[in-house]
Design a protein around this nucleic acid. Structure first.
Lengths: 222, 222
DNA sequence: TATACCATGTCAGGAAGATGTCAGCTTTAT
DNA sequence: ATAAAGCTGACATCTTCCTGACATGGTATA
């Protein structure tokens, strides 16, 4: 998902950028309508996050001209004003969604995902593995609808396996993902976490197989 | 969208009626509070447009009595006065929006659309969680019919959890919602508020579970 | 203006829980 | 059969979280 943020407040923009980056979604950022125009014409984005209150040309003008030119890119409008008509005109001008400041970054991310999904026709951001469902948004796992009580490490490990189904992960691969460079630990720590994770996955269809001397491989049992 | 206009100026009312009719939204019109009362009780409207300055009983009285009887129909108030207290009292008396004369018909139409959309968007004003009832309109919570004496922060936190039942909220999610970007606080502030909220919820069926290292999850206990 | 009160954040100590280490046992490949 | 690799129960340590006590700042009241 390639996104462009059009926002003149540096601090807010940077916070959003960091948040989205941590979520695994790089985000480009420009601080004026003029720069936005050229970015949009030069590159292809999946989504625009547009602050309405910009110096110079208003965000509305950008939105209006995009639509006038037949550009259907999903646009989420941010507005500091809480008046209803601001929102109304945003939607009437062709925005796909709006959010009033101050807002929750998680909500912004959720709405972006929703818009992107709507565009792609995708169903959800869950990872499905037989009777196991992993929700990437809330980092929670369910087996047959029952929530697993995963601890941090187990969760990280599970997520890693789910993102690498049917692929062998060496202990090095795993330790690089779970631990910082300067964190000291023995290889046994991973084995221990794995034991604990396997207990949690006892009656799920996700199997973590040991490949002796090489590493581990997660696959769905049918 | 079925609307009722309560307005004593014939010429203004007729202009509005024509405008809305051309927009494709038929609009009923009465010129007194008394007629409005009977219309509202006899038929079902999606929206009222209420002029405050009416002969006889004031528009405020109508508004007040509607709300006193638990009628939550969206009401947009028109006022010729521009004083702030007029607007304030309109909202305090339960109006959903107001507009000062003279106004642009397009703005009136946009605000009506917005109110209508907003209303359709929400199924109900109450969130039910076992023995806990939260009223989104008045922001009040009751457990077994007993009103909780929530403070501002506790209320915000509760509302956040209620809107995200069975979803994990990280402390970051929570702080983004409860605090402005530039407000300084320690993570402990959230823990403290949570402790206080949990005390209030002591014998309710809403449970706020701690997910160590990740955040919190609210769910209904059965 | 002075006072009291209340909401809310900070601090600190303690409790609860998570995670790594160790040691001994089991499994696997040769 | 043997050695190497992996598994796991028990334990120690380190984190995270909870909560009572206190500080602070804002607001209502006299």
């Amino acid at each position: 998902m390639r996104m462009l943020l059009i926002e003149d407040s540096d601090s807010l923009a940077q916070s959003i950028q960091v948040y989205f980056h941590n979520e695994g979604h790089p985000l480009d950022w420009v601080n004026s309508v003029e720069k936005a125009r050229s970015s949009v014409s030069l590159e292809s984005f999946d989504l625009l996050i547009l602050d309405i209150n910009l110096p110079g040309a208003s965000g509305f003008q950008l939105l209006q001209s995009l639509r006038a030119n037949g550009n259907r890119i999903p646009v989420l409008v941010l507005t500091a004003r809480t008046e209803i008509d601001d929102r109304v005109s945003a939607l009437d001008f062709g925005a796909d969604d709006y959010l009033a400041k101050p807002f929750d970054f998680r909500e912004l991310a959720a709405r972006c995902r929703a818009l992107y999904r709507r565009e792609r026709g995708k169903a959800s951001n869950d990872i499905l593995c037989g009777n196991l469902v992993y929700d990437l948004a809330t980092h929670s796992a369910k087996v047959n609808g029952r929530l697993l009580e995963l601890r941090q490490r187990e969760r990280q490990l599970l997520e890693l396996f789910l993102k690498n189904l049917d692929r062998v992960l060496t202990k090095d691969d795993i330790s690089n993902r779970l631990y910082d460079f300067n964190e000291a630990y023995t290889p046994n720590a991973i084995e221990q976490t794995l034991t604990r994770l396997r207990k949690q996955l006892a009656n799920s269809s996700l199997i973590i197989k040991t490949i002796r001397g090489l590493g581990y491989l997660a696959h769905v049992d049918d």
